[in-house]
Nucleic acid binder design. Structure first.
Length: 305
DNA sequence: AAGACAATCTATCGGCACGA
DNA sequence: TCGTGCCGATAGATTGTCTT
Protein backbone atom coordinates (compact mmCIF):
# COMPACT_ATOMS: atom_id res chain seq x y z
CA UNK A 1 0.00 0.00 0.00
CA UNK A 2 1.48 3.31 -1.01
CA UNK A 3 0.95 6.53 0.74
CA UNK A 4 -0.08 9.63 -1.18
CA UNK A 5 0.99 13.13 -0.35
CA UNK A 6 -1.67 15.21 1.35
CA UNK A 7 -4.24 16.90 -0.83
CA UNK A 8 -5.07 20.22 0.70
CA UNK A 9 -8.51 21.69 0.97
CA UNK A 10 -9.23 25.14 -0.36
CA UNK A 11 -9.21 26.48 3.17
CA UNK A 12 -5.83 24.93 3.90
CA UNK A 13 -4.38 26.30 0.68
CA UNK A 14 -5.76 29.72 1.47
CA UNK A 15 -4.19 29.66 4.91
CA UNK A 16 -0.78 28.58 3.69
CA UNK A 17 -0.73 31.02 0.82
CA UNK A 18 -1.52 33.80 3.27
CA UNK A 19 1.37 32.77 5.49
CA UNK A 20 3.66 32.53 2.51
CA UNK A 21 2.67 35.96 1.22
CA UNK A 22 3.17 37.45 4.67
CA UNK A 23 6.66 36.00 4.78
CA UNK A 24 7.40 37.51 1.39
CA UNK A 25 6.19 40.88 2.61
CA UNK A 26 8.49 40.76 5.60
CA UNK A 27 11.48 39.65 3.59
CA UNK A 28 11.04 42.27 0.92
CA UNK A 29 10.78 45.04 3.44
CA UNK A 30 13.77 43.88 5.41
CA UNK A 31 16.84 46.02 4.90
CA UNK A 32 19.51 43.72 3.61
CA UNK A 33 22.14 46.06 2.31
CA UNK A 34 21.88 44.43 -1.10
CA UNK A 35 20.78 47.63 -2.75
CA UNK A 36 23.57 49.53 -1.08
CA UNK A 37 26.25 47.12 -2.21
CA UNK A 38 24.92 46.86 -5.75
CA UNK A 39 24.71 50.61 -5.99
CA UNK A 40 28.27 51.03 -4.76
CA UNK A 41 29.57 48.34 -7.07
CA UNK A 42 27.85 49.94 -10.03
CA UNK A 43 29.02 53.39 -9.03
CA UNK A 44 32.62 52.23 -8.91
CA UNK A 45 32.35 50.78 -12.37
CA UNK A 46 31.00 53.95 -13.90
CA UNK A 47 33.56 56.07 -12.11
CA UNK A 48 36.29 53.90 -13.50
CA UNK A 49 34.73 54.02 -16.94
CA UNK A 50 34.51 57.80 -16.81
CA UNK A 51 38.10 57.93 -15.77
CA UNK A 52 39.27 55.65 -18.57
CA UNK A 53 37.24 57.53 -21.17
CA UNK A 54 37.94 61.04 -19.81
CA UNK A 55 34.35 61.72 -18.83
CA UNK A 56 33.22 60.68 -22.31
CA UNK A 57 34.67 63.87 -23.66
CA UNK A 58 35.01 64.08 -27.39
CA UNK A 59 38.50 62.93 -28.03
CA UNK A 60 38.66 61.01 -24.79
CA UNK A 61 37.14 58.00 -26.43
CA UNK A 62 39.88 56.39 -28.42
CA UNK A 63 40.19 52.84 -29.61
CA UNK A 64 42.95 52.28 -27.11
CA UNK A 65 40.83 53.63 -24.26
CA UNK A 66 37.90 51.50 -25.26
CA UNK A 67 39.96 48.36 -25.51
CA UNK A 68 41.43 49.16 -22.16
CA UNK A 69 37.96 49.66 -20.68
CA UNK A 70 36.77 46.35 -22.06
CA UNK A 71 39.84 44.64 -20.75
CA UNK A 72 39.03 45.98 -17.28
CA UNK A 73 35.63 44.37 -17.34
CA UNK A 74 33.78 47.58 -18.08
CA UNK A 75 31.89 46.32 -21.08
CA UNK A 76 28.85 45.97 -18.92
CA UNK A 77 29.00 49.60 -17.80
CA UNK A 78 29.50 50.59 -21.41
CA UNK A 79 26.23 48.94 -22.40
CA UNK A 80 24.46 50.93 -19.75
CA UNK A 81 25.49 54.23 -21.30
CA UNK A 82 22.80 53.63 -23.87
CA UNK A 83 19.34 55.00 -23.36
CA UNK A 84 17.77 52.58 -22.82
CA UNK A 85 20.58 50.20 -21.87
CA UNK A 86 21.43 47.47 -24.36
CA UNK A 87 21.65 43.88 -23.26
CA UNK A 88 24.73 41.84 -23.91
CA UNK A 89 22.93 39.73 -26.48
CA UNK A 90 21.44 42.71 -28.25
CA UNK A 91 24.72 44.55 -28.45
CA UNK A 92 26.43 41.62 -30.04
CA UNK A 93 23.79 41.45 -32.73
CA UNK A 94 23.39 45.17 -33.27
CA UNK A 95 27.10 45.86 -33.43
CA UNK A 96 27.42 42.82 -35.66
CA UNK A 97 30.44 41.42 -33.89
CA UNK A 98 31.31 37.80 -33.27
CA UNK A 99 32.17 38.17 -29.65
CA UNK A 100 32.13 40.66 -26.82
CA UNK A 101 34.62 38.74 -24.73
CA UNK A 102 37.46 41.00 -23.53
CA UNK A 103 40.17 38.68 -24.75
CA UNK A 104 38.72 38.60 -28.22
CA UNK A 105 38.11 42.34 -28.44
CA UNK A 106 41.62 43.01 -27.28
CA UNK A 107 42.93 41.59 -30.50
CA UNK A 108 40.37 43.27 -32.70
CA UNK A 109 40.33 47.04 -32.26
CA UNK A 110 38.04 47.42 -35.24
CA UNK A 111 35.44 45.31 -33.44
CA UNK A 112 35.69 47.56 -30.42
CA UNK A 113 35.13 50.49 -32.73
CA UNK A 114 31.98 48.91 -34.10
CA UNK A 115 30.69 48.34 -30.60
CA UNK A 116 31.26 51.89 -29.56
CA UNK A 117 29.71 53.26 -32.71
CA UNK A 118 26.52 51.58 -31.64
CA UNK A 119 26.79 52.97 -28.13
CA UNK A 120 27.47 56.43 -29.50
CA UNK A 121 24.36 56.38 -31.59
CA UNK A 122 22.08 55.43 -28.78
CA UNK A 123 23.85 57.12 -25.91
CA UNK A 124 21.43 58.58 -23.41
CA UNK A 125 21.34 62.34 -23.91
CA UNK A 126 19.39 62.79 -20.72
CA UNK A 127 22.23 61.44 -18.68
CA UNK A 128 25.07 62.71 -20.85
CA UNK A 129 23.93 66.08 -22.22
CA UNK A 130 27.48 67.34 -22.67
CA UNK A 131 28.12 64.83 -25.43
CA UNK A 132 25.82 66.74 -27.76
CA UNK A 133 27.41 70.10 -27.12
CA UNK A 134 30.89 68.67 -27.21
CA UNK A 135 31.93 70.27 -23.98
CA UNK A 136 33.16 69.05 -20.62
CA UNK A 137 30.49 68.08 -18.12
CA UNK A 138 29.91 70.32 -15.18
CA UNK A 139 30.40 68.69 -11.80
CA UNK A 140 26.65 68.45 -11.40
CA UNK A 141 26.20 66.92 -14.81
CA UNK A 142 28.88 64.41 -14.13
CA UNK A 143 27.45 63.51 -10.76
CA UNK A 144 23.90 63.21 -12.08
CA UNK A 145 25.13 60.94 -14.85
CA UNK A 146 26.99 58.73 -12.41
CA UNK A 147 24.01 58.54 -10.11
CA UNK A 148 21.48 57.69 -12.78
CA UNK A 149 23.72 55.16 -14.47
CA UNK A 150 24.60 53.41 -11.25
CA UNK A 151 20.96 53.15 -10.25
CA UNK A 152 20.05 51.72 -13.64
CA UNK A 153 22.65 49.01 -13.45
CA UNK A 154 22.11 48.25 -9.79
CA UNK A 155 18.37 47.81 -10.32
CA UNK A 156 18.96 45.20 -12.97
CA UNK A 157 21.49 43.45 -10.78
CA UNK A 158 19.07 43.32 -7.86
CA UNK A 159 16.41 41.80 -10.07
CA UNK A 160 18.79 39.12 -11.26
CA UNK A 161 20.05 38.45 -7.77
CA UNK A 162 16.52 37.95 -6.55
CA UNK A 163 15.87 35.36 -9.21
CA UNK A 164 18.94 33.40 -8.31
CA UNK A 165 18.49 33.77 -4.57
CA UNK A 166 14.87 32.78 -4.64
CA UNK A 167 15.69 29.49 -6.23
CA UNK A 168 19.01 28.72 -4.56
CA UNK A 169 17.80 29.78 -1.15
CA UNK A 170 14.78 27.59 -1.30
CA UNK A 171 16.66 24.65 -2.72
CA UNK A 172 19.21 24.95 0.04
CA UNK A 173 16.51 24.97 2.68
CA UNK A 174 14.99 21.81 1.28
CA UNK A 175 18.34 20.08 1.11
CA UNK A 176 19.24 21.11 4.64
CA UNK A 177 15.94 19.84 5.87
CA UNK A 178 16.46 16.48 4.19
CA UNK A 179 19.88 16.22 5.77
CA UNK A 180 18.34 16.97 9.14
CA UNK A 181 16.08 13.98 8.54
CA UNK A 182 19.06 11.72 8.01
CA UNK A 183 19.27 11.85 4.24
CA UNK A 184 22.57 12.19 2.42
CA UNK A 185 23.17 14.12 -0.74
CA UNK A 186 24.68 12.19 -3.62
CA UNK A 187 26.08 13.59 -6.86
CA UNK A 188 23.78 14.62 -9.65
CA UNK A 189 22.81 11.79 -11.93
CA UNK A 190 20.78 11.21 -15.01
CA UNK A 191 17.83 9.08 -14.00
CA UNK A 192 16.55 7.09 -16.91
CA UNK A 193 14.73 4.35 -15.01
CA UNK A 194 13.21 4.35 -11.59
CA UNK A 195 15.98 2.24 -10.05
CA UNK A 196 18.65 4.77 -10.95
CA UNK A 197 19.44 7.86 -8.96
CA UNK A 198 19.44 8.26 -5.20
CA UNK A 199 19.15 5.07 -3.16
CA UNK A 200 17.41 4.67 0.22
CA UNK A 201 18.08 7.61 2.53
CA UNK A 202 19.66 9.59 -0.28
CA UNK A 203 18.72 12.55 -2.40
CA UNK A 204 20.33 14.46 -5.24
CA UNK A 205 19.97 17.91 -6.71
CA UNK A 206 19.50 19.07 -10.29
CA UNK A 207 18.93 15.56 -11.55
CA UNK A 208 17.74 14.87 -15.03
CA UNK A 209 14.66 12.76 -14.54
CA UNK A 210 13.77 11.34 -17.88
CA UNK A 211 14.25 14.34 -20.10
CA UNK A 212 13.38 17.01 -17.60
CA UNK A 213 15.43 18.40 -14.82
CA UNK A 214 14.22 18.08 -11.25
CA UNK A 215 15.53 20.42 -8.58
CA UNK A 216 15.68 17.82 -5.82
CA UNK A 217 15.05 14.09 -6.12
CA UNK A 218 14.49 11.99 -2.99
CA UNK A 219 14.27 8.22 -2.68
CA UNK A 220 11.26 7.41 -0.56
CA UNK A 221 11.20 4.50 1.88
CA UNK A 222 8.89 2.53 -0.36
CA UNK A 223 11.38 2.88 -3.27
CA UNK A 224 9.43 5.54 -5.14
CA UNK A 225 11.15 8.71 -6.25
CA UNK A 226 9.93 12.08 -5.15
CA UNK A 227 10.75 14.87 -7.61
CA UNK A 228 10.61 18.25 -5.96
CA UNK A 229 10.45 21.43 -7.97
CA UNK A 230 11.42 24.56 -6.10
CA UNK A 231 9.17 27.42 -7.09
CA UNK A 232 9.33 31.02 -6.08
CA UNK A 233 6.70 33.46 -7.22
CA UNK A 234 6.55 37.02 -6.12
CA UNK A 235 3.31 38.03 -7.72
CA UNK A 236 -0.09 36.51 -8.25
CA UNK A 237 0.32 37.10 -11.96
CA UNK A 238 3.28 34.78 -12.07
CA UNK A 239 1.93 32.07 -9.80
CA UNK A 240 0.14 30.43 -12.67
CA UNK A 241 3.32 30.27 -14.69
CA UNK A 242 5.44 28.83 -11.96
CA UNK A 243 2.87 26.31 -10.84
CA UNK A 244 0.80 25.41 -13.82
CA UNK A 245 3.18 26.09 -16.68
CA UNK A 246 6.42 24.99 -15.07
CA UNK A 247 5.80 22.55 -12.26
CA UNK A 248 2.53 20.90 -13.25
CA UNK A 249 3.80 20.33 -16.78
CA UNK A 250 6.79 18.47 -15.41
CA UNK A 251 4.58 16.58 -12.98
CA UNK A 252 2.43 15.30 -15.78
CA UNK A 253 5.48 14.39 -17.80
CA UNK A 254 7.01 12.39 -14.96
CA UNK A 255 3.79 10.65 -14.10
CA UNK A 256 3.39 9.61 -17.69
CA UNK A 257 7.02 8.68 -18.18
CA UNK A 258 7.56 6.65 -15.02
CA UNK A 259 4.02 5.85 -13.97
CA UNK A 260 1.87 7.14 -11.16
CA UNK A 261 3.02 4.43 -8.78
CA UNK A 262 6.71 5.18 -9.30
CA UNK A 263 7.15 8.92 -8.90
CA UNK A 264 5.70 11.55 -6.66
CA UNK A 265 6.00 14.99 -8.26
CA UNK A 266 5.94 17.82 -5.79
CA UNK A 267 6.43 21.57 -5.72
CA UNK A 268 8.06 23.42 -2.87
CA UNK A 269 6.53 26.86 -2.79
CA UNK A 270 7.45 30.20 -1.38
CA UNK A 271 6.17 33.65 -2.14
CA UNK A 272 2.87 34.72 -3.59
CA UNK A 273 0.45 32.24 -5.14
CA UNK A 274 -3.18 32.36 -6.06
CA UNK A 275 -5.36 29.77 -4.39
CA UNK A 276 -7.06 28.93 -7.64
CA UNK A 277 -3.76 28.11 -9.31
CA UNK A 278 -2.78 25.99 -6.35
CA UNK A 279 -5.95 23.98 -6.68
CA UNK A 280 -5.48 23.52 -10.40
CA UNK A 281 -1.93 22.29 -9.99
CA UNK A 282 -2.91 19.92 -7.22
CA UNK A 283 -5.65 18.59 -9.45
CA UNK A 284 -3.10 17.79 -12.10
CA UNK A 285 -1.16 15.51 -9.81
CA UNK A 286 1.31 17.90 -8.27
CA UNK A 287 1.81 17.58 -4.53
CA UNK A 288 2.12 20.97 -2.85
CA UNK A 289 4.56 21.76 -0.08
CA UNK A 290 5.45 25.05 1.52
CA UNK A 291 8.91 26.30 2.30
CA UNK A 292 7.52 27.77 5.51
CA UNK A 293 6.33 24.34 6.64
CA UNK A 294 9.01 21.83 5.75
CA UNK A 295 7.84 19.40 8.39
CA UNK A 296 5.03 18.41 6.07
CA UNK A 297 7.68 17.04 3.76
CA UNK A 298 9.13 15.02 6.63
CA UNK A 299 5.73 13.71 7.58
CA UNK A 300 5.06 12.51 4.08
CA UNK A 301 8.44 10.86 3.77
CA UNK A 302 7.83 9.09 7.08
CA UNK A 303 4.46 7.90 5.87
CA UNK A 304 6.12 5.94 3.07
CA UNK A 305 7.83 3.53 5.45
C1' DA B 1 49.72 19.41 -19.53
C1' DA B 2 47.41 22.56 -16.97
C1' DG B 3 44.91 26.36 -16.35
C1' DA B 4 42.63 30.37 -18.17
C1' DC B 5 39.43 32.00 -21.05
C1' DA B 6 35.41 31.74 -24.27
C1' DA B 7 31.15 29.84 -26.26
C1' DT B 8 26.93 27.55 -25.71
C1' DC B 9 22.93 25.99 -23.53
C1' DT B 10 19.38 26.05 -20.19
C1' DA B 11 17.20 27.72 -16.28
C1' DT B 12 15.58 31.38 -13.11
C1' DC B 13 11.65 34.95 -12.17
C1' DG B 14 9.50 39.33 -13.72
C1' DG B 15 6.81 42.29 -16.55
C1' DC B 16 4.51 43.85 -20.63
C1' DA B 17 0.76 43.61 -23.97
C1' DC B 18 -3.14 41.68 -25.84
C1' DG B 19 -7.65 39.89 -25.94
C1' DA B 20 -11.77 38.24 -23.47
C1' DT C 1 -10.20 43.99 -14.89
C1' DC C 2 -8.31 39.52 -15.38
C1' DG C 3 -5.87 35.58 -17.54
C1' DT C 4 -2.40 34.25 -20.58
C1' DG C 5 1.53 34.06 -23.79
C1' DC C 6 5.71 35.59 -24.79
C1' DC C 7 9.99 37.52 -24.11
C1' DG C 8 13.92 39.92 -21.47
C1' DA C 9 18.33 39.97 -18.59
C1' DT C 10 21.11 37.37 -16.48
C1' DA C 11 23.68 33.30 -13.90
C1' DG C 12 25.69 28.86 -13.87
C1' DA C 13 27.08 24.45 -15.82
C1' DT C 14 29.25 22.32 -19.34
C1' DT C 15 31.92 21.93 -23.19
C1' DG C 16 35.43 23.72 -26.25
C1' DT C 17 39.69 26.30 -27.30
C1' DC C 18 43.73 28.74 -26.62
C1' DT C 19 48.12 30.07 -23.85
C1' DT C 20 51.82 29.42 -21.24
Amino acid sequence: MTSSPARWTTAELAEDSAISAAEFRTERLAVTGAWESHYQAARSKFELLFQKLSNLNPGGVTDANLTDAYGSGLGEALRYLAGPPISDDDLQVIANVDSLAPGVLKKKPEEVRKVFEVIERVIDVHRFPWIETGTNPTDQERDAALLASSVLLAAQRIATERRVEGKDGQETRVKDYLRSQGFTEVPTATITTIVKGPQPMQFCAECLLGERKADVVVRLHDTRLMAIECKVSNSATNSVKRLNNDAAVKAEYWLKMFGTSQVVPAAMLSGVFKVMNLEQAQQRGLALLWAHDLDKLGLFIESTR
